[in-house]
Amino acid sequence: MDMEIEEIRGTFRPELIPKETGGDIEDYEEALHVLMKFVGSMSSALEQVSGRGANAIVYQAGKRMGHDAAKMMEKTDNLEQAMKEMGEVLGVEFYFEMWKPSDQEGYTIEKGNETVVKLLFMDCVVRQTLRRTGLPQKGPLCYLLYGYMVGAVEEVMSIKGKLDIDHVGPNACLKTLTIKWGGK
């Protein structure tokens, strides 16, 4: 297939940065797909080289992102409030809502010194990347979200949390977030 690459020639003036990005929506799309392929192949290479250590690496990366994303958020010790705030911050890339089965009263369940809440992730960049590259879900890249949520929770509530994957699907994934009170 012949592909014509159009070269963009023009004047470079520093004051135009970042207003002029030098590309249209199709360039963004192409860049997104290249990035998805790159991240996907990096994830499978990581898994090949480091085995289960890949999960820890991606988890750590996610945790940093979570801490950074939640820095500007208001601190709270109310889990439902924290989830709402996090939903606003993580919104577009990782759109999630609290979820509960129909026979459960509230979203949160208290278990001794732990509070548990189920989160339904609907839009997820990780899932899209995995589907773009044909990789299975629940792999190392899913640990990015694990780290992301834990990092954000640590930042907002100043306590430890963990995120378990209950179920993955092509349109949404269900995860359980467990908060350990007094577990700094």
Binding site: L32, D123, Q128, R131, N171, A172
Partner: peptide, 26 residues
């Protein structure tokens, strides 16, 4: 609306309505 059932159904026999359809930028 995780749609695992859609993915696994060999006959594509189901339809979900009024759900959040996740972005498919891939």
């Amino acid at each position: 609306a995780c749609l695992s059932c859609h993915e696994i159904c060999p006959a594509q026999a189901m339809e979900h309505r009024d759900i959040h359809v996740a972005k498919r930028l891939y």
